[in-house]
Simulated assay, not measured.
Amino acid sequence: MAAPSPTEPAGWPLDDRGAAYGDGLFETLLVRAGRPLLWDEHLARLARGCHALGIPMPPEHDLAAPLAEAGPGLEVLKLTLTRGSGGRGYRPPAAPAPRLRWQLAAFVPDSGRWWNGVRVRLCRLRLGLQPALAGIKHLNRLENVLARSEWQDDAIAEGLLEDAEGRLVEATAMNLFWRRHGRLETPRLGRCGVAGTLREALMGCLSLHEVDAGLEALMEAEAVWLGNSVQGVWPVAHLEDVEGRGLAVWPVGAAHRAFQAEAHALLGYPCLP
């Protein structure tokens, strides 16, 4: 395989396989005063994705190059790696020349959702089962796009996704966590879904159990959260079904704050009283 090319300016050629087929990967990470948060976890997930897709992993200095342009505040860096151009139809080139692009943008988190919790709904769309792609952040995210198109009400912060067999997986852009019978749990992601870097870091510092569970787990839960490495952790206060009917309510309290504090310490976000 050819070595990855260095970072290129914005813009995709029409024959780029990432644009044509979703043949690539991306990472979205929080940058605080030029320092990337959960950098090791992002690099590890990107490496797993490269291995799964057979794309050469770029050297770390190429991936870190955009940080030289970071400002003093809070920003989000998106790294996009494709297989590049070439091949015939779906057949990939024998020696891919990956293409790395990036975008750095100022960011302000929605702190109101930290404090007050969020309203979420179940999605009609069910995620397909594909263990070969489970856990990685590949570019083909049409399932997430279709799920997110199910509602337009800005009061609904997220949608929860089940797989084709009715197991809880994630939200459209965040991982899912809950406490049930005093135990912290999160869906197992061996069949589909994205293994978030905040989720990975929390599994290293908390007793967080991966489980196969359906909606009944949330009905038994004492507290529920959504989280990712950019937004931090949102307590879930209200859950609705696909028709907007209420299913459960969780008053935001001390249990929510304890888990949130663990996550926010990893991202430099405030721990709330």
Rank of each mutant, 00 (worst) to 15 (best):
A2L: 13
A3I: 02
A3P: 06
P4Q: 04
S5Q: 12
P6H: 03
P6C: 03
A10P: 07
L14G: 11
D16G: 10
G18S: 13
F26W: 13
T28D: 02
L29D: 08
V31G: 07
V31A: 03
L38M: 07
D40W: 01
A47P: 00
A47D: 10
A52H: 03
I55Q: 02
P59D: 12
D62A: 14
L67K: 05
A70L: 09
G73T: 08
L74N: 01
K78A: 03
L79C: 10
L81M: 11
S85A: 15
A95D: 15
P96R: 02
A97P: 01
R99I: 07
L100A: 06
A105Q: 11
A106H: 06
V108P: 01
V108H: 14
P109E: 05
S111P: 02
S111Y: 11
W114S: 05
W115P: 04
W115L: 10
N116R: 15
N116I: 00
G117F: 01
R119S: 15
V120E: 02
V120L: 06
R121D: 05
G128W: 06
G135V: 08
H138N: 11
L139Q: 11
L139Y: 01
N140P: 08
N144H: 13
L146N: 09
A147Q: 01
S149E: 09
D153W: 05
A157C: 12
G159K: 01
L161I: 07
D163C: 09
A164E: 14
E165V: 10
G166C: 12
F177V: 04
R179F: 00
R180A: 11
L184G: 07
T186V: 09
T186D: 10
T186A: 12
L189I: 05
C192N: 04
G193M: 06
R199D: 08
E200W: 08
A201S: 07
M203T: 10
C205L: 10
L206K: 04
L206P: 06
S207R: 13
L208S: 09
H209V: 10
D212N: 12
L215A: 14
E220S: 09
L226C: 07
G227D: 02
N228S: 05
V233I: 13
W234S: 00
P235Y: 00
V236E: 01
A237E: 08
A237Q: 06
A237C: 04
E240A: 09
E240S: 14
D241W: 08
V242G: 04
E243R: 10
E243L: 11
G244Y: 10
R245N: 09
G246P: 15
W250L: 00
V252S: 02
A254D: 14
A255G: 15
A261K: 03
E262G: 02
A263T: 14
A263N: 06
G268S: 13
G268D: 05
L272A: 02
P273C: 03
P273E: 11
